[in-house]
Amino acid sequence: MKEIYAVIRPNKIGATKEALAILGFPGMTAVKVVGRGKQRGILGEVSFNIDPELLKTTGGMKYVPKRLVYLVVDDADVPLVVAVIIKINRTGQIGDGRIFVCPVEEAVRVRTGERGKEAI
């Protein structure tokens, strides 16, 4: 099993969730996060009012609003899930995000006690 973390643009969360559900991966967690990559924040990245505390004097931002999506999938499903996340979220512009794939040693469904692949 692997856990896939994807940091994506806020306006792409709906399409990402829908695409994953269509492919049979309805279970995921998504949270609002702020951060920045190598670009150090892009003021034009967002289309809403920004807290003045987030703005830098250089015209950039300390942090850019993003969404963090994560889900656990079987090893065999990793290439498909990663490819779909890329397809939905790639704009070709700075700030498209990152995907991280990490090993998962164990999964346990609390309600039933199922373990491993059956728990996801």
Rank of each mutant, 00 (worst) to 15 (best):
M1C: 04
M1L: 11
E3D: 06
A6D: 10
I8N: 04
N11D: 15
I13A: 12
I13T: 14
G14M: 04
G14A: 09
A15K: 14
K17C: 04
E18S: 14
A19M: 13
L20Q: 00
L20K: 05
I22N: 07
L23P: 01
G24M: 13
G24S: 09
F25Q: 02
P26F: 04
G27E: 10
G27S: 12
A30G: 01
A30D: 10
A30N: 02
K32Y: 11
K32L: 09
K32D: 14
V33D: 10
V34Y: 12
V34N: 13
G35A: 06
R36H: 15
G37L: 07
G37M: 07
Q39E: 08
S47N: 15
N49E: 12
E53K: 05
L54Y: 09
L55C: 11
G59Y: 13
G60W: 00
G60L: 03
M61R: 14
M61Q: 12
V64P: 00
P65H: 08
K66E: 07
R67K: 15
L71I: 10
L71C: 08
V73N: 06
V73C: 07
D75I: 01
D75C: 01
D75P: 07
V78M: 07
V78F: 02
L80M: 11
L80I: 13
V81I: 08
V82W: 06
A83I: 02
V84F: 00
V84I: 09
V84G: 00
I85W: 06
I86E: 08
K87V: 00
R90S: 08
G92W: 05
G92S: 08
G92P: 05
Q93D: 10
Q93I: 12
I94D: 13
G95K: 06
D96Q: 07
G97V: 05
R98A: 14
F100V: 08
V101M: 05
C102F: 06
E105Q: 09
A107L: 06
V108N: 03
